[in-house]
Design a protein around this nucleic acid. Structure first.
Length: 578
RNA sequence: GCGCCCUUAGCUCAGUUGGAUAGAGCAGCCGCCUUCUAAGCGGCAGGUCACUGGUUCGAAUCCAGUAGGGCGCGCCA
C-alpha cells in the first residue's frame, strides 16, 4: 500500500465534505520535508482556497477537523501558510510493517501501469565488436528501468535494435575477410586504415576458414561480402550477448535493421508518410557554424519533421539512393507502434542528443499523435583509478571492454554504481572507490546493511531456531513492542518504499532507488549502533523473546525491501561480507 | 550561429515533479569498540541553489534572458 495515495483519497473525501465539487487534481499528500511536521502533509487548503473563496488557514481548519475523525490519525495541525500536517498512530505503522512481511519481495509493487504495454529499447550497440564501458551504462539503465516499470504493473518488453544494415557492417565483413586470410596462413601485416583492427575478429575469421576453406581467399568482394557480413554480424552479436549475460542484462526481443529493410518495412513506412503528405523533395539550408568541406546544395527526399517540433526537416535518402539511418529508424519505430507499443522508451548515449527531436517527431507522425517516445540520454562515464583518469590500454587502442570491467570489479558493482547518478549527469566510475569498503561506497554500504541483518538472524537461530516461521505470520500484539523512535523511524522508511517505487517509475528514473536504499541502509546502521550505546535496544534480548521477535520482524522487513530494491537493479544481495 | 543537456557546501552529489528553516557522503574538528561485523555510529562546522528579471499564497524546481561547461549540427550509425 502506498500510504500517501491512500491518504490523498482520504483528504479529498474530507475536502468533498467541506467544499463539495472542487477540482482536487492539484491536491497532494506527501511526506513533509521535516519529520517533526508529522507523517503526511497536504497542500489541499492552499490550492483550493481561491476557488472556495476562503482564507487558506480557515479552509485548512475545516478540512483538518474532518481528518481528525480518521482511525489512524492521532493529530492534525495546520501550519505555515496553510499546510495540514497529519500524524499517524503507531499501530498504523505496525500495520505497514505487516504489509512488508506479508507481501515479501513483492512489496512496493502496484498496478499503477495497469498492464499497459511499454517497449524499452536499450544497448543497441553496433554489432561490430565487443561492448565497451560506454555501453554498460545504457545497458544497466535500460534494464533497471524495465524492471522498475514491470514492478509497478506495466507490461514491459525489453528490446535490442541490431544495426546490421549500414556501411559499418561492410567494414566489419572486410575486416573479418582479412582475418579469414590470416587464418588460412597468409601474413596480413598491419591492419589497413579504415578496417577494424581488434583481435576479437580472429575467431570469426577462423570459423569462416573452417567453413569455406580457401574458396574466398582471392575471390572478388562481391562473391563473399554477403556471406561474410551475415556470419560476422552473428559472431559479433554472440559476443555482445555474452557480454550482456556477464552483466546480467537481458532482452526479450532482438530486431534486425536489415530485416526491416529487406522485409520492405522502410519502403512501407515512407509510403505511409508520403500518403500523409509528410515527405517532399527539397533543398536544405546549409548547416550553421563549421560547414562540411564538401557541402553543396542538393535536392533531397525530406521528412517534414518541423511539423512535429523539430528544427529542420530531415533527409531520408543518401546521395547514392539508399536509405539514411533515420529512414530505417522511422520504420523501426512504426514497427514498434504497430506491434502494440504506444509507449516507447529508448536509451541512448548522450552523443545522440541531436537525434532526439527528430525521432520524437517521427513517432508522432507515424502514430498519428497517439504514440509517445521518451529518450533517456546516458552521459559519459569517466573511468578513474584512485581519482586519476584511467585507461586500460589494450594493444590496439585505449578502449575498455565491458568484460574487462566486470572481471575487475564484478557485475553487481558495475550495475549498482551505474545507477547512482541520474542518466543525464556525468558519472565518475573509480575502480578503487567502487570496491572500497566504506560509507563512501554506496554498493558496499547497502550490501553491508543487508549482511548485518543476516548476521543477527544467524545468531537468532541459535536462540530461537523457529523464529523465522513465527515472524512469517506476525502477531500485531508482539510487533507493538516496537516503540523506540528509531525503530518506528525505520518502519516509516520501509513504508515509504511503495511511493518511492511509483515516483521513480513514473519519472523513468531508476537512480532514485539507489538513493533510497542508501538512506534505508543508513537508518538501519543507525539503529544497530544504538544497540551498542543502549543494551536494551539490541535486536536480540534473550530474556525477552517477544521483543526480540518483533525486532527480528523489523530486520526481516529491511532485508525484504533491500533485496527487492536490489532486484530492480539486478544486483544479488549479500548475506555475509567477511 | 542553432538545438539539447548541465551549473546546489572546499570536493562528489540528492532534493519526493511548485511547498515550510535546501539535505547526504567525503575532506576538517570532537566523541563512541570487554557487547548482534567500529567495514560502523553520534555531534560540530560548512550555502547569495551560477546571475538577472518574471509567473503566484509559495520557486533550487516553471518561463525569459545572461554567463560558464558538455554533446550534437545533410549523404555516420
Amino acid at each position: 500500500m502506498n500510504l500517501f495515495s491512500y491518504f490523498r483519497t482520504e483528504i479529498i473525501a474530507a475536502v468533498e465534505k467541506v467544499a463539495p465539487g472542487q477540482d482536487t487534481s492539484k491536491v497532494t499528500a506527501e511526506p513533509p520535508r521535516e519529520a517533526s511536521h508529522g507523517d503526511v502533509a497536504t497542500n489541499a487548503a492552499m490550492v483550493l482556497c481561491k476557488a472556495v473563496g476562503a482564507k487558506p488557514r480557515d479552509l485548512a481548519d475545516k478540512i483538518a477537523a474532518e481528518l481528525r475523525g480518521h482511525a489512524a490519525v492521532t493529530g492534525v495541525e495546520v501550519a505555515g501558510p496553510g499546510f495540514i500536517n497529519i500524524r499517524l498512530a503507531d499501530s498504523f505503522w505496525i500495520e505497514r510493517l505487516i504489509d512488508v512481511l506479508r507481501e515479501g519481495e513483492a512489496y512496493g509493487g502496484s498496478d499503477l501501469g495497469k498492464s499497459h504495454r511499454v517497449n524499452v529499447e536499450y544497448v543497441s550497440a553496433n554489432p561490430t565488436g565487443p561492448m565497451h564501458i560506454g555501453h554498460a551504462r545504457g545497458a544497466v539503465t535500460g534494464d533497471a528501468l524495465a524492471s522498475l516499470l514491470a514492478k509497478v504493473g506495466y507490461d514491459v518488453t525489453r528490446e535490442y535494435y541490431v544495426n546490421d544494415a549500414g556501411a559499418q557492417v561492410d567494414v566489419l565483413a572486410r575486416s573479418v575477410h582479412l582475418r579469414y586470410r590470416e587464418a588460412l596462413g597468409e601474413a596480413i601485416g598491419e591492419i589497413p586504415e579504415g578496417l577494424y583492427p581488434g583481435d576479437y575478429l580472429k575467431p570469426a575469421g577462423a570459423a569462416l576458414a573452417q567453413l569455406h576453406g580457401a574458396k574466398f581467399k582471392d575471390a572478388p568482394e562481391a562473391e563473399w561480402l554477403l556471406e561474410f557480413r551475415g556470419h560476422s554480424v552473428e559472431a559479433m552479436l554472440g559476443m555482445i550477448r555474452s557480454d550482456l549475460a556477464g552483466l546480467g542484462v537481458r532482452h526479450d526481443v532482438f530486431v534486425s535493421e536489415r530485416g526491416l529493410v529487406e522485409g520492405g518495412k522502410v519502403q512501407a513506412a515512407l509510403e505511409f508518410l508520403q500518403a500523409k503528405g509528410l515527405i517532399y523533395e527539397g533543398v536544405l539550408e546549409p548547416p550553421k557554424g563549421k560547414l562540411p568541406d564538401d557541402w553543396e546544395p542538393r535536392p533531397q527526399t525530406l521528412f517534414k519533421a518541423t511539423q512535429f517540433g523539430d528544427d529542420v526537416d530531415r533527409p531520408l535518402k543518401k546521395s547514392d539512393g539508399s536509405w539514411t539511418y533515420f529512414a530505417s529508424d522511422i520504420a523501426y519505430h512504426l514497427d514498434k507502434y504497430r506491434r502494440g507499443f504506444a509507449s516507447m522508451i529508448d536509451v541512448w548515449g548522450a552523443d545522440h542528443g541531436g537525434y532526439v527531436k527528430r525521432m520524437q517527431a517521427a513517432v508522432k507522425a507515424v502514430s498519428e499523435g497517439k504514440g509517445d517516445l521518451d529518450v533517456k540520454l546516458c552521459q559519459m562515464v569517466n573511468l578513474l583509478k584512485g581519482g586519476q583518469p584511467y585507461k586500460m590500454s589494450k594493444r590496439a587502442g585505449t578502449f575498455v571492454t565491458l568484460a574487462d570491467l566486470v572481471e575487475a570489479v564484478g557485475k553487481d558493482v558495475v550495475r549498482f554504481i551505474m545507477l547512482t547518478r541520474k542518466n543525464d549527469a556525468h558519472l565518475d566510475f573509480d575502480l578503487d572507490k567502487v570496491t572500497e569498503q566504506s560509507r563512501d561506497n554506496p554498493v558496499f554500504y547497502v550490501q553491508y546493511a543487508h549482511a548485518r541483518c543476516h548476521s543477527v538472524m544467524r545468531h537468532a537461530v541459535e536462540i530461537w531456531p523457529d523464529w523465522a516461521s513465527i515472524v512469517q505470520t506476525p502477531d500485531p500484539a508482539v510487533l507493538q513492542r516496537l516503540t523506540d523512535p528509531a525503530e518506528l523511524g525505520l518502519i516509516k522508511q520501509l513504508a515509504g518504499w511503495p511511493r518511492l517505487v511509483e515516483t521513480a517509475a513514473e519519472a523513468h528514473e531508476p537512480h532514485r532507488v539507489a538513493f533510497y536504499l542508501y538512506e534505508l541502509a543508513a537508518g538501519f546502521h543507525g539503529l544497530w549502533n544504538k544497540g551498542k550505546d543502549e543494551a536494551r535496544l539490541r535486536f536480540l534480548i534473550e530474556e525477552d523473546r517477544d521483543l526480540s521477535l518483533a525486532r527480528l520482524a523489523l530486520l526481516q522487513a529491511v532485508v525484504l525491501v533491500i533485496s527487492s530494491g536490489l532486484a530492480i537493479f539486478g544486483v544479488e544481495p549479500m548475506k555475509e561480507m567477511r
